[in-house]
Amino acid sequence: MTPAVIRAESVHKSFGRTDVLKGIDLTVAPGEVMCLVGPSGSGKSTFLRCVNHLETIDRGRLYVRDELVGYEERDGKLHELSEKAVSRRRRGIGMVFQRFNLFPHMTALENVIEAPVQVRKVPKKQACERGAELLDRVGLADKASSYPAQLSGGQQQRVAIARALAMKPELMLFDEPTSALDPELVGEVLEVMRALADDGMTMVVVTHEMGFAREVGDSLVFMDDGAVVETGPPADVLSDPRHERTRAFLSKVL
């Protein structure tokens, strides 16, 4: 059996006195598209950020490809890794943010080639060729020399996806990728994500797009108050939720 891409065991996290994650257990298989849904403050974004160590965890174990994220285990204790080791492990994990977070002082193409050139030391010419390919793949071949401020929200988010893909990740994390978009621009971003899923990319998507979850997702996880309430195939959970809390949430968003 191939190892799980993500394996979370009893992950705890608190900000000050607020417990944000109260023991999360999850596994994501290779090629799986997992959608995390739930009310705001339920901890789904925090969990996603823990996966690439943008947040530290307080207790539990979180493995990506059988390697602990941001830590190493010695004598049964977790030791935080050096910054260098953390960034090395992050390279295989792409992340797409709600607010795009494109680098505004760089063109679309410069955004895409920045990490390959700086981190992976890919020659600039080669990086540009691949960057152009990636922009073409997200349908923005003609926007390579545009600055983020000259692009619409949907276009910016597609550049952000291309930028994450440029590092050739084996796992993509999406943190509410369409929540900051005008309704008519949501479709173009979801289309790119769907194509990515069809190519077999392993994805974890925090989203409120139940249609996307139903059609593209392999599994759906409903979180509330820092815990996983319900997991299952999206169609089952969406049409026949077992828990009262899930039912109450879905009745409001569907």
Partner: peptide
């Protein structure tokens, strides 16, 4: 500078110096 900028750079595997 928005914190999201450093986060995006770190998520791409860039070091603090970079």
């Amino acid at each position: 500078v928005d914190d999201g900028q450093s986060e995006a750079a770190q998520a791409l595997g860039m070091s603090r110096g970079q």
